[in-house]
Design a protein around this nucleic acid. Structure first.
Length: 258
DNA sequence: AAAAGAATCAACCGCGAGAAA
DNA sequence: CTTTCTCGCGGTTGATTCTTT
């Protein structure tokens, strides 16, 4: 790509295969470019090489003139007033540096772009990071709260479930009933239950295999199994009695409740 | 005093739009 | 109408300078 690196001392420069120079400009090159613009005006940058004797391509010449040699350029640091204008215009137009530069006489788009990158992007990132952090913390809190609430609900459902199951099993034991196999048997059991109509409904739906009133969505099976194991702990032999009442495998046991 | 890391800024690159041939 | 050229823009790079450890 490059034919060599020349120019000793402190400056470096590159000459490409096609003869164009690249890298930092020398004061001699600057002088030639200024002379060229004085004589021919701005524009036709590709003619600079032939007319001014510069071994720079048009693009490089234009950039050097626009960003560094133009006489109307303002030297020195960006003032606080300019800074606030940049902020305001960037908020309005985004990264349209040339548009912003037109509103800041003496400043170039490149200068503003660099200034933004070094001063504001950092601040913007900090602000964004801080906002992000706050958002994450609040999300985490929200999640924890949701999990806690869910756990509470599940716990309540579990207690209710165990309580209801206990009632059913006691009832079965008391009346030496087996798990009903027909809807008629179920109906008979429900009517025997000395509870309210609403509780009859629960009872009825449990016996008919509708356990959705106790568990929600994805965790149905998990809760159900947990419930069964807990039920076993709580009721001890009662579950055994139920199993004995109607010999069945585990799958048959689970099915009626979900 | 020296090394490492961060900040700065001049310059380059690729791309698209518009003008000229 | 199509192709080529020129210009301008925004993004990126990398050498230099400054600051911190």
């Amino acid at each position: 790509m490059y034919s060599g690196v020349i120019e000793g001392n402190t400056r470096w420069c590159v000459i490409e295969e096609d003869g164009w120079r690249k890298g930092p400009w020398t004061s001699e090159e600057d002088k030639l470019l200024i002379e060229y613009v004085k004589l021919h005006g701005e524009g036709r940058w590709n003619s600079v090489a032939s007319l001014a004797g510069l071994r720079r391509n048009g693009k490089s010449c234009r950039l050097r003139w626009v960003n560094y040699l133009r006489p109307d350029l303002k030297k020195g640091q960006i003032t606080p007033q300019e800074e606030s204008i940049i902020l305001e215009l960037h908020a309005r137009w985004g990264n349209r540096w040339s548009t912003i530069a037109r509103n800041l006489p003496g400043r170039t788009d490149n200068e503003i772009k660099n200034y933004w990158r070094t001063h504001f992007k950092k601040k913007a990132k900090k602000t964004a990071d801080a906002a992000d952090k706050t958002k994450k913390v609040s999300l985490r809190k929200q999640n924890q709260q949701q999990i806690k609430q869910q756990q509470q609900i599940q716990q309540q459902q579990q207690i209710q479930y165990n309580f209801d199951m206990k009632g059913i099993l006691e009832l079965l034991e008391e009346n030496e009933y087996s798990v009903p196999s027909t809807s008629q048997e179920t109906q008979e059991m429900v009517t025997m239950c000395p509870e309210t109509t609403e509780q009859h409904g629960y009872f009825y739906s449990m016996l008919n295999g509708n356990c959705n009133v106790y568990a929600d969505e994805s965790s149905n099976e998990e809760i159900l199994w947990d419930g069964l194991w807990n039920l076993d702990d709580v009721l001890g032999n009662s579950m055994q009695l139920m199993l004995q009442a109607k010999p069945t495998n585990v799958h048959n046991l689970v099915t009626p409740f979900c």
